[in-house]
Structures are given as C-alpha cells and as structure tokens.
Design a protein around this nucleic acid. Structure first.
Ligand code: MN
Ligand code: MN
Ligand code: ZN
Ligand code: ZN
Lengths: 148, 148
DNA sequence: TTACAATATTGTAACCATTACAATTTAATA
DNA sequence: TATTAAATTGTAATGGTTACAATATTGTAA
C-alpha cells in the first residue's frame, strides 16, 4: 500500500473527507517526517498541484490538527512546524543546522504534586542544542584551524 | 532586600548595565511569575515609566535572554511568553483559563540512544489540558444543568 | 441524471506580533 | 567637559497567519 492510500485510509478512519489536498498533504507529512513549515508544505506540493493556495494549506492543517492526525510543533519561535508522527515523542532542534529530530520521550507527570487534579491532554518535550553531525564538523574545523 | 534591588544585583552579576528598564522589567517578571507576553509587560510597566516603548521591551527581553536571566516560553502558538524562573521546570497551559503554571520537571535524556553524541543546551516541557479550578467549575456547571 | 445543499478550496486583503533601522538620549570614560 | 559607546525611542516594514467572500466541488435525494 502506497503512502497516498495510507493517508486516504487514515482520513476515512477519522471521518474526514479524503479530498485531494488532504490526502496529498498528509501523505507528504508521512513520507517526509522532517517537521516542515506551512510554507515548505505549500512549496513542496505546488508542482504536483498547481491550483493549490497557501490558505488551503492552513485550512487543511487545521482540519488535520482537529482530528489529531497531525500535531503542531512550536520549538522554533518563528514558524510553526507540523508532524504526522502520532506516537508520543520529543523533538530536538539543532541550533546549527536547524534540523528537528525525534527522540523517545514518554514522561509521566501523574505523580507530580503541582498537577494533581489536572487533566493533561498533550505533552511536548523540546530540547535545543547541537546535533552530533554539527559537533563533529565543528571539531574538524577547529583542528584544521589549529594545524594552520 | 526589595525586588528592584534583587534585579539590580542579578544584572550586575551578569555584567549587564542595570538600567531603569532592565531593572524594572526583570523585577516585574520576578514579582509576577505568570509568564506574561511582551505586550503585557509593556502595559504593566507603562504607568510607572511613561516614556517606555514597545521596542525597548523587546530589546530588553533580548538582552535578558542573551544572559539567560530570562527564558522564553513558546507553549502558546500565538505569542511568546517570558519567564524569570531560572530553575529547570515545566509549563502547563490550561485551555480554559489560559493560565500557565509551573511544575517540577527535570527529565534526563542522557541515556537516550537517539541523542547520544548530541549537545543538549535547553529543555522545555510543555503540557496542555485543563487545570484543577476549571475542571471543578465545569463539574459544578454540569451538575447545575442536570438539576434544572 | 439533475437539483439542491453542504462542504471544500481559492484569492485577496487584513491582522498583528515582531524586527529593522535611523535618530535621539543617556551613561561611561578620559 | 569632551568624546565615545551603549541604550532607548518612534516609525515603518516584515512575514506568518487569519478573515472573509467568491467560486468550485462533493454528497444526497428526488
Ligand atoms: Mn516528530
Ligand atoms: Mn515558569
Ligand atoms: Zn546540526
Ligand atoms: Zn484553567
């Protein structure tokens, strides 16, 4: 089953009409788990869907958020990012390459006294720092500078 | 020692000139740990500081962020919020009253395989849901409706 | 199929938090 | 005091997001 069919089924399961935009946008998010911005989604889908409008991307994302097929990532202060990753996981933002990577995180705050009696619906864990690849590049550059 | 003096000392300790705006803004954040927006800070400080400009609020916040006397909260997608709370803690946003409350959270991701070799600088844990008070109000309202 | 109503998509303009920038003011130093 | 650097301010611009009305598409029932 290809990703378009998968997206279609996910939409039907949530009783959301599997229209062209919705299927394609969800399929794109499923196939590209890099947490794109609304504009990146628009740019990526435009070639295969020339009538697409930016507003429709936002409308579609709102609908997908509504039925929780997509979650919203605010780790970057400038632009909202979107993720079709369903399971609970955290996000790491590299300050150098600005890639956002997933990691396992399933914190349990049921025992937290400050939150006793609270209803917790969503959880987001955001880490920022420097990723492995960028750290290695930095070390390499520093060694080269030392050698000169 | 009052909060203004405390703010002044904190600024000096970070080698940041303790100007009027900086002292007052930091003091306000220390005395009002409710995670205000930039505009809320502007509105709150204006009466006691009529020449204050919105730009200065942003400039001041940038400076305080730079020296890590203030941290930035992006749990609300619409507006950035600011916190002079230094220690590691998480934030809970109530969807009903939109209050943001602190809770103890000091997650350890050093053992996380996906992040091995990564340099982690900052950590933010954001929870959303409904707070205790709002839940009680909702229950009360439902009972009253039932009684009618 | 056709008619109708509900829903979805689009283009345009507006919104609004944040930022850029140049002018002015203030403070540190000599 | 003179010189210089840093801080503050007002204005205008930026850019992601949203409001809204027009258009198109879809589902349903005659
Ligand atoms: Mn993810
Ligand atoms: Mn806090
Ligand atoms: Zn990186
Ligand atoms: Zn509440």
């Amino acid at each position: 089953m290809n990703v378009l069919e998968k997206a279609r089924r996910m939409l039907k399961a949530k009783a959301v009409r599997p229209t062209m935009i919705r299927v394609r946008l969800l399929a794109y998010l499923l196939a590209h788990p890099v947490h794109p911005t609304a504009d990146q989604l628009y740019q990526a889908l435009l070639p295969g869907f020339p009538t697409l409008s930016k507003t429709s991307v936002y409308n579609t994302l709102d609908k997908l958020l509504e039925v929780k097929l997509v979650r919203l990532i605010t780790i970057d202060e400038k632009e909202t990012r979107y993720d079709a990753g369903t399971g609970v996981h955290g996000h790491f933002l590299c300050k150098h390459c600005s890639d956002i990577t997933d990691f396992a995180a399933n914190p349990d705050y049921t025992g937290c006294t400050e939150l006793s009696g609270y209803q917790i619906d969503d959880c987001n864990v955001y880490l920022t720092g420097i990723c492995k690849v960028c750290l290695q590049n930095i070390n390499k550059t520093q060694k080269e500078e030392k050698a000169v």
